[in-house]
Amino acid sequence: MTALLPTTGPTVFDADHGPVATPPGYPDGNRVLSVLRVGEHVVLTVYPPYTHSTEPFEILEYTGPASPPRSLGQAWSVAPDAAGDGVWLVRQDSTDNCRLQHVSLAGGDFGRGGPAGCRVQVRGEIRHGLLITVHSGSAESADVLIDPRTGRSVRQHPRILGAAGDWLLLDGFTDLSLLDLRDGRTTPLTRPVSGGPPTVVPSRDGRIFAVDFANPSYRGPVQTRDIWLLRPDTRTWEHAPGMPFITEHLKRGGGIDWSEDGDLVLADGVLAAWHPGEPQWRMGTAALPPGDWSGIAVLP
């Protein structure tokens, strides 16, 4: 089991042998990286050390452990397309204008794109549309599923936690709900644990939501992680084994992703993999590198 970690570098990490490569050509120093898996590809965003940047971020495609990255140019946000072989980008056109563009990871793009707000955050595409957050980072933010080619709104909700297959997972005041995009029907769900908005990572086939009800301040400085699986077609929850547990890695040195084989992979001190239905996690033996990195992308 191997993953790309967005350390300064970044790091190709083997679950049992530790760091095995540092790909060349990436920014070093005090730059911050985030990592995004796009099908079998991996894309990284390079952030400045300060919080409020006045310039878009550099977007890079990982091309292998011994190869420099390929630049996709600058953008305010990036998200995978539905096919897993391209990305959606919010580009800066001028001082006040931005555009939404679809770029192929095989090289080239699918046209210049259309106008978009510079504070739009793209989050991911399914066959029903592209999930975005408008006015991202403000009190007026809202989540919208749009037709990316026309800009037409398909569905809108104050908070859409995730999109996969034919489903949107919606966050309410106290409970969650599922919206079936085939018929527009919304089904209430009982939240398995209380707390704030969870982190949601859909499986690669779109059939399962991994839902992490992490709590960064459980009791004072104590952090807890509590992972559940939600199957939208049956509207049933499955509690991952060993949950909840106390952790020190919610804000740094952690993350979750899915493998091509359908394993849920957790970075928390070490890399661990669990196939739904199995009784326990398969734990790696190598300690993850320390630092202020967060997120993982499982490599083929």
Rank of each mutant, 00 (worst) to 15 (best):
V42D: 03
T236R: 15
D261A: 15
G151M: 08
F173I: 05
H52K: 02
Y26K: 07
D96V: 14
H41E: 14
W281N: 09
T174E: 08
T174G: 00
G113A: 07
D205T: 05
Q156W: 02
V38T: 14
S104A: 08
E238M: 09
D147P: 00
G124L: 02
P192F: 08
G137H: 09
P65L: 06
S53Y: 05
E61C: 01
P49T: 03
P279G: 13
T285M: 05
P241W: 14
S194H: 11
P23D: 06
R225T: 15
S141A: 07
T51D: 12
P23R: 08
T234L: 04
L100N: 05
V201N: 03
G184D: 11
G29N: 15
P19Y: 04
V134P: 00
T45M: 06
I256L: 15
T190W: 03
D180T: 04
H102T: 01
Q101C: 00
R112M: 11
R155G: 01
C98F: 05
D233C: 00
P198H: 01
Y218P: 02
W88F: 13
G172S: 04
A3F: 13
I246N: 04
T224R: 12
W258C: 07
P115G: 10
E140T: 10
I160Y: 08
G107V: 01
P241D: 05
D263M: 12
V201Y: 03
V12H: 10
V134R: 12
G129F: 04
G137E: 07
G253Q: 11
L266C: 03
D226A: 11
R159T: 12
G107D: 05
R99Q: 02
L169P: 00
A75W: 13
N30C: 07
D212W: 11
V78I: 14
V265Q: 06
T199S: 08
Y218D: 05
T174R: 03
V32Y: 11
I59G: 04
P24W: 09
A15K: 07
A106Y: 04
P241S: 11
D257W: 05
T51H: 10
R112H: 05
A297K: 07
G255M: 12
L33H: 15
L230I: 10
G151N: 02
V144T: 04
N215C: 06
S94Y: 09
T190A: 13
K251T: 06
M1F: 12
G196T: 12
G262D: 03
G162Y: 04
R219G: 07
T133G: 02
S94D: 15
A116Y: 04
G195A: 09
G113H: 01
L250V: 13
L250Q: 05
G269E: 03
P202Y: 10
R112A: 11
L161S: 08
L44D: 01
G277P: 10
E125N: 10
G269H: 08
L189Y: 14
A21E: 08
G242M: 14
T190Y: 05
